[in-house]
Design a protein around this nucleic acid. Sequence first.
DNA 1: TTAATTAGTGATCGGGCGATAAACAACCGT
DNA 2: ACGGTTGTTTATCGCCCGATCACTAATTAA
Lengths: 228, 228
Amino acid sequence: MSKKASLRRARVKQKRLSPDDRRKEFVAKATEFFSEEGFGGGTRALARRLGVTQPLLYRYFPSKDDLIKEVYRTVYLKPLENGWEKLLADRSRPIRERLQEFYNAYTNVIFNRKWIRIYLYSGLKGLEINRWYVGVVRDKIISRIIRECRFEAGLPSHTKPTAAEIEMAWVFHSGIFYYGVRKYIYESPVLESKEQMIADAVDAFLAGFARVFGSVDGVGQSAAKEVV
Amino acid sequence: MSKKASLRRARVKQKRLSPDDRRKEFVAKATEFFSEEGFGGGTRALARRLGVTQPLLYRYFPSKDDLIKEVYRTVYLKPLENGWEKLLADRSRPIRERLQEFYNAYTNVIFNRKWIRIYLYSGLKGLEINRWYVGVVRDKIISRIIRECRFEAGLPSHTKPTAAEIEMAWVFHSGIFYYGVRKYIYESPVLESKEQMIADAVDAFLAGFARVFGSVDGVGQSAAKEVV
DNA sequence: TTAATTAGTGATCGGGCGATAAACAACCGT
DNA sequence: ACGGTTGTTTATCGCCCGATCACTAATTAA
């Protein structure tokens, strides 16, 4: 009896957590685990890291694939909770400022080994959720940036962005994103100040956008085709 | 006898190739295979695709890992055979033209599903050869671009590029590279004309470089820090 | 205190994996 | 035509994987 009581008190092994906590813990640690090992990582190794036995995973998730899907869902959904669309669209502030602040905030969330690895792995797998996320970025970020740039340049901001404009914003966006890849995946030395990288990229993008689409001599014809 | 002869003639099963041809074929097809399946792909599936049995692989490569290393070697080395350094350094031609031509040529080699997938997989694995390749890009391409941009802007082109300059060229370079990722990995719609994408990116980069580092008001202080 | 419920475990299954060894069959010099 | 050489296959090993099931033990309700 006294033994029983002491066991109850000390909770010797970390057993018998509430199902909700366990689930959340599983998903969180599984995110870490798969981001390092890739989704080929074994359920036994995962369970070991969780401090439980492997079959327990199957009490909470019908299959490894379901667990993986849950990982994707949380990873991809988390960065979208914030109201970033508004930040970009606030025309009371200069576009340069908005872009800087947006990318500082956005990269604060996605620039970490876990997020980027999961993102790349899902991209390589060609998963639907990755395509969906790319679509969201295009519709909520890229398109918005073009519209704001046009507005700033005195161009019509209601008509649909052209493919060339979209592309230019993508190249800009990707350049920033890849800073994270170089830092957290390739572990290559990067400019220590993320803020400065973003500020410079924004400046270059704005200057480039004005030059290619907006600028001085009137209508934007992209990439004046002189003979190469 | 007649049977034997006919077999010899028809070469019914593709057996008995010369070791050299086999090796090359193995590496080539293995590149395709692993680029699709990831390096977790099985040797049996690979052998099936090659039309041979699985143990035959082990006559040509001591282990799966050795085969993979050979794949890396060929994939990474191929694009470096060309003399691209010279192209960027030819100061008799305008920098815009050189950058455009360089990136058109470079992307012609690396923009395909195989190359990009192998590259990303090796990056995620943290392999030495990937780090090495990134270093080569930095030393042969990124640094060179900065030097040429400086020269063009009348800045001293001998002193070592600053971290901020390097970073800006990386962001530019990565933006272009990621066009390939979006097209061949994410299979997302991109601007149909790769040439235009490059031309616009180059224009934006040059305008941005001038604005941030070079331009009108003399010395380049990067990203004039106004309060955000 | 006791019975029902349920979180967690131990043992195990079928299958695919990388790798090995022995048998077979095509080629080559003689 | 013949015997050694070598490219290729058949059969198989040990291992680890995802998944299942019967059992144990902690919790809860009576």
